[in-house]
Design a protein around this nucleic acid. Structure first.
Length: 556
RNA sequence: GCCCCUGUAGCUCAGCGGACAGAGCAAGGGAUUCCUAAUCCCUGUGUCGCCGGUUCGAUUCCGGCCAGGGGCUCCA
């Protein structure tokens, strides 16, 4: 809220300066309000005067001086305001304001860093959406962490968010999958079978077949192939779904909706969409296939909806799927896709636009995870036997470290992931540094309780808070005050990775404060004040870790 | 050939148009009679891929080039 209040101060100063004739009237450009890197530049700084100067060819420092002269009376909130450098205005906060902010933080508690910016707009984030024909790979893990964190961030600014997993349980791949399982099943019974040419060769197919053998017995070998494949498809599919759900749950990612592609075909939704497209003149026949005129809406070329053999493409069901989302009342849709599906984005956007829903769909592309083992690249394909599953990573590295690892990188950069290195380095994961700060605070609070301090005291009175004033205390508090604005900007930019850096900075300031000052001392008033600061820090760490889906342990 | 992403310290990566470009790891040295040393302190390194442009100011925006990754299917 500090940044917001300063923002209002500046707007007010601008109005007053214009009224007084010190500045010429006009629009106030969008200006920055940030924590300067250098201490001498105060607690917060703005470039507003530089921007105004460039708009109206004025002298930045003079404009800055004028603004400072007309700043509203801040009731002691500001200790010092200076014009510096080429024309920055640097603000130094007064201690009363900092105390006031700490109290507000404590009173907000879990709600600190939460906003009501979009008043319950219904939004959906669809992510992971792996094909249900095998285990998740490491890339899925990245997108699971990312999608979940983005969803949490959007919740924090006020959206009503739904997390959805689209299950591609329709089409050719399911049949190949069934045939692969069938072949392994027959093999297990000692029969000579030719493995399907394009079948899935991963070891897990054998495991699925073995489980079917265990639960169903061997008698399927005597049944007609068609019947057997159909049955195996469903049995194997159910197994994989079970596995997907439990792995993701273990990772702390739980979806509100698991949406079946097949249901779009069964309900006739797909046929209705094709009719609609035909009726709207957006679809046409050519070469025996049905095409959609997506190129009229920004796509590179038109796309096939129905193949010449009469079967619908994935694209056709995806259109039906997205319309279904809108029918469910969602006002904004975010699809998080892997970079390998990037080429698909244009046509999907074109389809949405063609159907009269421009701007509703937002597609976030997450770059891939390049797997390595001992420096050597490993293919991430389900078809090759060699594959490192996400589950293996989860087993080896653990939920918090895995999540944190993925969330420290921007989704725009491809990540090299060496599983050997990851195991080896999981001990060095910065997540423990942050968690340790949290655990340390919990430990201090336990100790305080033992020593007869009131660790549960919600908000100490002003004279107690007045004991805070050491540089390390103020630096820490100032860092805590950045949190609210950070949440807002990360949500807006869909950039959860910035939260990890913030966590590390906050933890660092806390650890430094801790080594420099003793919290629990004979001076009970000072102890109360410092305990309060600790609790505020804990609250922010907890809230922020919560957005990332990382646990905040009480002890380590 | 076209589209998207990336190119910043030895390595892995941050950096939302601004004031001397940052963190972790790695290397070396130091700190614990006291609330958890999974901590803290000290010591270095940068043609911010290259060339132009916009701007009072560019690592950040725009254009071109080079390099790496991904995609360009009546596959999903």
């Amino acid at each position: 809220m500090i940044a917001r209040t300063l923002h209002e101060f500046i707007e007010e100063a601008f109005r007053r300066a214009v009224e007084a004739g010190d500045l010429s009237p006009g629009e106030l450009p969008p200006f920055a309000l940030e924590r300067p890197r250098v201490k001498e530049h105060g607690h917060w700084a703005t470039n507003v005067a530089l921007l105004l100067a460039s708009d109206r060819k004025g002298r930045p420092r003079e404009i800055a001086e004028a603004l400072v002269r007309h700043l509203p009376d801040s009731e002691g909130r500001l200790e010092r305001v200076e014009v510096a450098g080429p024309g920055f205005i640097n603000f130094t906060l007064g201690l009363p304001w900092m105390r006031e902010e700490l109290v507000r933080l404590a009173e907000a508690g879990e709600g600190y860093g939460r906003w009501e910016l979009v008043a319950g707009t219904r939004l959906q984030v669809e992510f992971v959406s792996a094909n249900p024909v095998g285990p998740l790979h490491v890339g899925h893990g990245r997108w699971a962490a990312l999608g979940d964190a983005i969803a949490s961030l959007l919740e924090a600014v006020g959206y009503r968010v739904e997390r959805e997993f689209y299950v591609n349980d329709f089409g050719n791949q399911m049949d190949i999958f069934a045939a692969s399982v069938e072949a392994r099943y027959l093999e297990l019974l000692g029969l000579e079978v030719e493995f399907p040419e394009d079948g899935y060769r991963g070891e897990y197919i054998r495991a699925i077949a073995a489980e079917i053998l265990a639960s169903e017995g061997g008698s399927w070998k005597d049944r007609p192939t068609e019947e057997r494949r159909l049955a195996f498809r469903e049995l194997a599919y159910a197994q994989v779904m079970e596995h997907l759900k439990s792995t993701l749950h273990r990772f702390g990612v739980d979806f509100d909706v698991w949406f079946s592609e097949r249901s779009l075909h069964e309900s006739g939704a797909l046929d209705r969409v094709l009719e609609k497209l035909r009726g709207a003149g957006l679809a046409y026949e050519k070469d025996g296939a049905l095409w959609m005129a997506t190129s009229r809406f920004g796509d590179d070329k038109d796309r096939v909806l129905l193949r010449s053999n009469g079967t619908p493409t994935y694209f056709a069901s995806d259109i039906a799927y997205h319309l279904n989302k809108l029918e469910r009342g969602l006002e904004h849709i975010i699809d998080l896709w892997g970079a390998d599906h990037h080429g698909y984005a244009k046509r999907m956007q074109a389809a949405m636009q063609a159907l009269g829903h421009p701007g509703v769909l937002e597609i976030i592309i997450g770059q891939l995870v390049n797997l390595k083992r001992g420096g050597e690249p490993v293919r991430m394909s389900k078809r090759t036997g060699e594959m490192i599953t996400f589950e293996e990573l989860l087993d080896e590295v653990g939920r918090d470290a895995a999540r944190y690892f993925f969330l420290t990188r921007s989704q725009d950069s491809a990540v090299d992931f060496d599983i050997e290195l990851a195991k080896q380095q999981s001990q060095d994961n910065p997540v423990y540094y942050v968690q340790y700060a949290h655990a340390r605070i919990c430990s201090i609070l336990r100790y305080a309780e033992e020593q007869g301090h009131d660790a549960a005291e919600a908000v100490p009175p002003p004279e107690v808070l007045g004991r805070l004033g050491e540089e390390e205390e103020l630096d820490l508090a100032l860092k805590l005050f950045e949190y609210e604005e950070l949440v807002r900007s990360c949500a807006q930019d869909r950039a959860p990775h910035r939260l990890t850096r913030y966590l590390e900075e906050t933890a660092a300031l806390f650890h430094y404060f801790y080594t420099k000052h003793r919290v629990i001392t004979e001076d009970s008033e000072l102890s109360r004040a410092r305990l309060f600061l600790c609790k505020c820090t804990r609250q922010v760490l907890r809230n922020c870790l919560g957005l990332l889906g990382v646990s905040a342990p009480e002890s380590m």
